[in-house]
């Protein structure tokens, strides 16, 4: 019997998702026993043309990490989709846009200006920016087009499963491998994590207390046993899906939402605003104003990993700008 084929790819990503697969340690050998890995840039030397030469749907499982922020990533997403029976959005970037989707608060031109002109390490008097096509003496060079807007994988191609997390924890990766090996993958569309919120899985004491102010980390030493939010520290637990093992909160750090919204929640940031508003002690407009002032960078905190997947998707583009 021929072994099933697995492909792994990274788009706008950090490589942490690939390392998470390697973090399965000796179990990675089980994966290699179980399946042939036919494409995996971080670890194996297969090229794009190898994938192009494969028959359609000949890859059994594609674990795609990273968001889609340029035309090459979009093309490879479409290519791997055509070649794969099952497409998995692997990690927060692929599922929700992740950290790269903080770029949706800005535009391509603003990023170019900062990176290639203003940054202290740039000397670029001629204002040279990356071009999709450059003529050189020997011929032509091409680069992908960077988009203004970072997209999730599912905004570009059909996706069968979602594995959230930045990166996904090893126990979830192994569970997916088991489900795949035993032919027991869940119904299409499933998000492979918990069906509860992070707060439901968090063991800190919750006293249903109102908070009088919001603290930044340097303004308070948090009690390690009490709910962080009830101590006035913004924690995204109420608006985040469980399944990570409450990793950050156990390290006395507030959650930042890398597992995305819990079941039934469409917009993670909006849910968090309502959760915070409901526990904030407010006797009128003055208190509400103070709360708004207390929260530094609300958009970048409430949509830390989920801007591409949010209802707003991005900061509005100047009139006449490219692709939104």
């Amino acid at each position: 019997m021929t072994k099933p084929k697995i492909a792994l790819y990274w788009a706008a990503a950090c490589g942490g998702c690939d390392v998470a697969v390697l973090d399965t340690n000796e179990k990675i050998l089980d994966i290699a026993n179980l399946a042939d890995i036919v494409f995996w840039p971080v670890a194996l030397d297969f090229k794009y043309h190898h994938v192009e030469e494969m028959a359609d749907t000949s890859i059994d499982l594609c674990l795609f990490n990273g968001a889609v922020r340029n035309s090459e990533q979009e093309e490879i997403a479409r290519l791997l989709r055509a070649k794969s029976k099952v497409m998995v959005a692997f990690g927060a970037c692929a599922c929700f846009g992740g950290i790269p989707a903080l770029g949706n608060f800005t535009t391509r031109d603003e990023i170019f200006e900062r990176v290639y002109i203003e940054s202290p390490s740039s000397a670029n008097e001629n204002r040279t920016f990356p071009q999709t096509l450059t003529k050189v003496e020997e011929g032509e060079l091409d680069l992908p087009e960077m988009f203004d807007t970072v997209m999730t994988l599912a905004q570009v191609v059909d996706v069968e499963y979602f594995i959230p997390g930045c990166p996904p924890p090893v126990d979830i990766i192994l569970k997916v491998v088991d489900l795949f090996a035993s032919g027991q993958l869940p119904p299409v569309g499933a998000i492979i994590a918990s069906d509860k919120t992070l707060c439901d899985e968090c063991e800190r004491t919750k006293e249903e207390k109102k908070i009088a102010r919001i603290y930044r980390p340097h303004q308070i030493i948090p009690d390690p046993n009490r709910c962080l939010l009830e101590q006035g520290i913004i924690c995204c637990g109420p608006a985040t899906r469980g399944g990570c093992g409450v990793r950050c909160v156990k390290a006395n750090m507030p959650c930042r939402g890398c597992f995305g919204p819990p079941p039934g929640v469409i917009d993670q940031g909006a849910k968090l605003v309502s959760a915070i508003a409901s526990i904030y002690q407010s006797d009128g407009q003055e208190d509400i104003n103070r709360m708004l002032e207390d929260i530094v960078d609300p958009a970048g905190t409430f949509y830390r990993f989920g801007m591409a997947d949010s209802m707003l998707k991005r900061k509005s583009l100047p009139q006449g700008e490219r692709r939104a």
Binding site: P100, G103, R114
Partner: peptide
């Protein structure tokens, strides 16, 4: 062939 733009989108973050 890739740029994510941390240099820009880290601005404004606490």
């Amino acid at each position: 062939p890739e740029l994510r733009g941390f240099e820009k989108f880290c601005e404004g973050r606490p």
